[in-house]
Amino acid sequence: MTGRVGHNGEVTVPAPVELDQPDTDFIVELEDPWVTVVWNDPVNLMSYVAFVFRTYFGYTEEKADEQMMIVHEEGRANVSAGRREEQERHVQAMHEYGLWATLERSSV
């Protein structure tokens, strides 16, 4: 850090730098900006949806069942979060399994 020399020769303490509002979007992007959402549908079997969550995402039986019930009861669940490319791969994989999935920005 550098100081400034004033008119009288004394060294002044640098004024606090004024910052713009922090760029929160950027900070969020370093964390978990994109989520894979699985939506409820009336066709897929509950056992199959839980199976997909275990097999593809490697969830424990307990977590897979819990996520499946959130989809079933609330209509949707955020099943994964991370980089956009990664979440796009997950969405494509879900489509191959026949689950209705979309990608969106995390609202956190």
Partner: peptide, 16 residues
């Protein structure tokens, strides 16, 4: 069978 990957976002859906 081949749904949009982005909801309410036709540009990103088309690109995907």
């Amino acid at each position: 069978l081949l749904p949009d990957a982005y909801r309410d976002d036709p540009d990103n859906a088309a690109e995907f």
